[in-house]
Design a protein around this nucleic acid. Structure first.
Lengths: 191, 191
DNA sequence: TATGATTACTCATCATTCTGAGTAGGGAGA
DNA sequence: TCTCCCTACTCAGAATGATGAGTAATCATA
């Protein structure tokens, strides 16, 4: 039950509509959770029913009416409780890694292609996150911001996300180059 | 539907019983997937029913009888198909990151404590994976192994896992130190 | 003046993962 | 000898997440 808390945590940065959240979940928030729009809308209504967030309608002339949500005191208390509870260990769960694991026994070409695609996507993500980080810290340099800037939470998760993407990128590039090289040269037949 | 393929990929390295797999899923295999023992046993029986793996009973004197599974030709074909299909984007999904995201609004102490615990766990994981990597490559140095060694798949995923844990560790240590420092000094009240 | 993209959401259902509770025998240490 | 831990598994059901198919109005582009 943690999309729940991811949404709560995301709403701490201000009021958001479901739609805006779906956008945020594509960039910043995706550093610690990811979800489909439908899941977000569903979670938002559950959270509202439970009184952890409250929504207010905003009528717009040119666009459909939207509902902006913000965290209630009960929501904050729930986050407090959640933050103090023990968390599950983190782990990677990645289709592509499964494919690489099997690469000695299956066609390499499609795997290499996917590694290339991933590398490109990760690089793009790094770019985006870097911009986000710069926007967070304004004209402060990183060291200063980390010491005194606020909010520090989103900055730290963003930092983690950027590093993750960078590592992912580097690994993809390296693995792709390597597999390409091995495929080009004759090798002793894999068992 | 990918625990399925993770299990298949794991079984490529040889015959395993369900129990042995649960152990492997705690170390090497956890680099690309993680699952509870119960899930593994269930998945194994499904895979066997679908003819993707076949099991043989091994009676032991001193321990309970076990079943060792290996990938069938159909299983290999399924992996082949899977490897060529497009994969979903990877992302972090981590409770602790959610907590850090909210850290400006909740008690820091328990979050810091969890960061410490995570850092320690990640360091231990790095150790384990490093040993695994050394065992994989035997007396070859890394460069040579990456060029010519086999199997290369497990080595690459292991490498990725190690990097992930290392990054995770570093981030936890840094974030904990930072939050500790900020908590010790008086700061402008968070919004 | 179509066409497609964008904002803003909803509903239903399926797939997957997680959790708790058991079973059963052997070995090791107090 | 009592208890706990390790091997080796099973079953059922709850919780969580993913997917497909809509609705409906506005706006920009061709």
């Amino acid at each position: 039950m943690s999309l729940r808390h991811a949404v709560l945590a995301a709403l701490l940065s201000g009021e958001y509509s479901g739609y805006q959240l779906t956008k945020a979940f594509d960039v910043g928030v995706a550093n610690f959770w990811y979800a489909q729009p439908q899941q977000l809308y569903l979670e938002l209504s559950k959270l509202e029913n439970d009184g952890l967030i409250s929504g207010r309608e905003v009528v717009q002339q040119t666009r459909p009416t939207k509902r902006l949500f913000s965290v209630t005191d009960a929501g904050l208390a729930e986050l407090e409780r959640f933050a103090a509870a023990t968390s599950k260990p983190s782990f990677i769960r990645d289709d592509l890694l499964v494919k690489v694991q099997a690469v000695d026994h299956v066609e390499v070409a499609p795997v290499i292609e996917q590694l290339d695609q991933r590398a490109a996507a990760a690089a793009a993500k790094v770019e985006i996150l870097d911009k986000l980080l710069r926007r967070f810290r304004g004209d402060l340099d990183e060291e200063t911001f980390l010491r005194d800037g606020t909010p520090i939470g989103p900055y730290l998760t963003c930092l983690r996300g950027k590093r993750f993407e960078q590592e992912h990128h580097d690994w993809c590039v390296r693995a792709a180059a390597l597999l390409r090289d091995r495929a080009a040269r004759p090798l002793p037949a894999p068992r």
